[in-house]
Computed example of a mutant assay.
Amino acid sequence: VAIGAGILDQLAAPSARRRRPVPPRSWLPGPRQVAGFARDRVGELTRAVGIGASVMRASRLELGAGSALAADSSGTRRLATAVLDHEDVQRIRRAEGGTANDVLLAVVAGGLRRWLLERESRIPGAEPRALVPVSRRRPGAPPGSGNKLSAYLLGLPVAEPDPLARLAAVRTAMDRNKAAGPGRGAGAVALLADQLPPLAHRFGAPLAGNAARILFDLLVTSVPLPRSQLSLGGCPLRAIHPMAPLARGQSLAIAMSTYGGRVHIGLVADGKAVPDLDRLAESFGQELADLLGASAAR
Score class of each variant (00 low, 15 high):
165 A>F: 01
233 G>P: 05
33 Q>F: 00
97 G>K: 06
115 W>I: 01
280 L>C: 08
28 L>E: 11
92 I>M: 04
157 P>M: 05
252 L>D: 03
122 R>D: 12
208 A>M: 09
276 D>F: 05
219 L>Y: 03
155 G>V: 00
235 C>S: 13
64 G>N: 05
33 Q>I: 05
72 D>T: 12
298 R>D: 07
205 A>R: 15
188 A>N: 04
46 T>L: 14
190 A>W: 01
119 R>H: 12
208 A>H: 07
3 I>A: 14
49 V>Y: 07
223 V>F: 05
224 P>W: 11
92 I>E: 00
131 L>F: 04
230 L>N: 03
179 A>Y: 05
272 K>D: 10
188 A>M: 06
250 Q>K: 15
267 L>C: 10
94 R>C: 09
20 R>W: 06
113 R>S: 00
87 E>F: 00
215 L>W: 00
223 V>G: 11
193 A>F: 08
263 V>T: 10
272 K>E: 11
44 E>P: 06
261 G>T: 11
199 L>H: 00
280 L>G: 05
126 A>T: 09
182 P>H: 11
285 G>E: 13
61 L>H: 12
205 A>S: 14
270 D>V: 02
230 L>I: 06
19 R>S: 10
201 H>M: 12
265 I>L: 15
223 V>S: 10
38 A>P: 01
22 V>I: 14
81 T>P: 02
277 L>M: 03
120 E>L: 10
50 G>N: 08
159 A>P: 03
290 D>K: 09
253 A>I: 13
276 D>E: 15
212 A>S: 14
57 R>V: 10
24 P>N: 05
226 P>H: 10
281 A>C: 13
221 T>V: 12
231 S>A: 11
211 A>F: 03
152 Y>T: 01
97 G>I: 04
77 R>D: 03
234 G>V: 06
295 S>Q: 00
49 V>P: 01
102 D>S: 07
194 D>H: 07
82 A>Q: 07
117 L>D: 08
297 A>D: 11
33 Q>N: 02
150 S>R: 04
26 S>K: 00
244 A>Q: 05
220 V>A: 13
160 E>N: 04
263 V>Q: 12
8 L>F: 15
124 P>Q: 08
46 T>M: 09
229 Q>S: 11
88 D>C: 05
14 P>K: 05
246 L>M: 12
163 P>C: 12
258 T>A: 09
206 P>T: 09
250 Q>L: 15
35 A>W: 06
125 G>L: 13
218 L>K: 06
293 G>H: 13
133 P>V: 00
6 G>S: 15
184 R>G: 01
63 L>M: 15
104 L>P: 01
141 A>M: 07
270 D>L: 02
227 R>D: 10
131 L>T: 02
58 A>L: 03
33 Q>V: 11
265 I>R: 07
185 G>M: 03
101 N>R: 02
272 K>C: 06
226 P>W: 05
218 L>N: 07
244 A>R: 01
240 I>W: 14
66 G>Q: 00
199 L>M: 11
86 H>W: 14
268 V>N: 14
237 L>K: 01
70 A>V: 13
72 D>L: 08
91 R>C: 08
33 Q>M: 12
137 R>N: 09
150 S>T: 07
107 V>H: 03
